[in-house]
């Protein structure tokens, strides 16, 4: 645990660490993650076409996919990206940028299955996020179903977080 005096978190942000994040921050993180998934899809398509061009330069044509397929690939990529990021570090790049982290009811990062289920639920029903504005504990529908929370955590690594499991679970840390 890093002493408060030496914490890299700015003084003005310290009172919020460990509290449940609100709609705007989480939506911002979601938009960034959507862009990341989009970039991944584009890079994937470019990569596939590059491989095809290398293998068969003659008669090469850019792969054309129906819009439904592109959307499907995008959603699948987004779900995998979200699940992997939440399971591995508790945060996606969007979460990292907005200074939030996904934790389970014990304040730890969610397990692989829980992360995958959460990602699929977000991809299938993104409007569930709106419930964190109307809900009592700033939890989205996905959070309520899976027992997760999203908290402000500006520490770069989960291991450096001064957030205790109990504090993270109840949001009483001030």
């Amino acid at each position: 645990m890093i002493p408060a005096a030496a914490s890299p978190v700015p003084r003005e942000a310290r009172p919020y660490q460990g509290r449940s994040a609100g709609l705007v921050t989480r939506a911002g993180a979601g938009v960034v993650d959507g862009l990341v998934a989009l970039v991944l899809v584009v890079l994937g398509l470019v990569g596939v076409n590059g491989v095809r061009f290398v293998l068969r330069p003659r008669g090469f044509e850019v792969t054309s996919m129906p819009a439904v397929s592109v959307v499907g690939v995008f959603l699948a990529t987004l779900a995998l990206y979200l699940a992997a990021a939440w399971a591995l570090g508790g945060r996606t790049y969007g979460c990292h940028l907005m200074g939030v982290r996904v934790v389970d009811h014990d304040g730890r990062r969610p397990g692989a299955l829980r992360a995958l289920a959460r990602a699929v639920l977000y991809v299938v029903f993104p409007l569930g996020l709106l419930w964190c504005a109307a809900g009592r504990s700033r939890r989205s529908v996905q959070d309520l179903l899976l027992g997760t929370r999203v908290v402000y955590d500006w520490m770069p690594h989960a291991g450096h977080s001064s957030l205790g499991p109990g504090e993270a679970a109840t949001g009483t840390r001030t």
């Binding site: 890299p8 978190v9 700015p10 003005e12 942000a13 919020y16 994040a21 609100g22 709609l23 705007v24 921050t25 911002g28 990292h96 940028l97 907005m98 200074g99 700033r138 402000y152 500006w154 520490m155 770069p156």
Partner: peptide, 20 residues
Amino acid sequence: TSAVSSEAVREVRMRGIAAD
């Protein structure tokens, strides 16, 4: 610390908290 080194990132986060 690269994660929170940017003043812009800090500003975005604080604005996000205020908006929340």
